[in-house]
């Protein structure tokens, strides 16, 4: 499916999605956190889209917002798509976990939790994966300060 066909199909599911192809090689969908799990499971289960391969899951700090970027590919139709979800809550950012849809998300969400402090509902084993258990702060956030370990140029 081409990007425009995908956009037509997916926008018919939910009217609150934002589509964009600017500044990216993929079709980007921005979804509100409450629709995330519904949209992603639909993306996987629908025959025409069948995005069964989550090839990248990235945590993002956009400055004001925290977000997660999901790179999806269909191994059947070979098309790709990017799903983005953002929240302005920096104190207690929470999204729904997608690890029941793609098993690989279990590890990647742990990584995002470790570095950005984003929590995922229904995650079976959310813990600090790389950093020590007693580490304070989330190092990949833009406002993270560590005067001892960080070399700023």
């Amino acid at each position: 499916m081409t990007n425009s066909e995908l956009q037509t199909l997916i926008s018919s599911w939910n009217s609150e999605l934002e589509f964009s192809e600017a500044e990216s090689q993929f079709l980007n969908i921005t979804v509100k956190p409450e629709y995330l799990h519904q949209l992603t499971s639909q993306l996987k289960s629908t025959k025409e889209t069948s995005f069964d391969f989550l090839f990248c899951l990235t945590g993002m700090d956009w400055g004001a917002d925290l977000g997660v970027v999901y790179h999806l590919e269909s191994t059947i139709h070979k098309h790709q798509i990017v799903v983005k979800v953002n929240t302005s809550d920096r104190e207690n950012p929470t999204f729904d976990s997608v690890c029941d849809i793609w098993y690989t998300a279990e590890f990647h969400e742990m990584e995002v939790f470790d570095f950005f402090g984003i929590k995922f509902n229904n995650h079976p084993n959310l813990k600090r994966l790389f950093m020590p258990k007693d580490w304070v702060g989330f190092p990949l956030r833009k406002d993270y300060v560590d005067e001892v370990n960080m070399v700023i140029k």
Binding site: E23, S24, Q25, F26, F55, C56, H71, V82
Partner: peptide, 18 residues
Amino acid sequence: KGEFYQRVETARGELGVF
């Protein structure tokens, strides 16, 4: 300005650079 994704095949599998 923008987002760029590159995939390559290493000896272990797909490496993505985002």
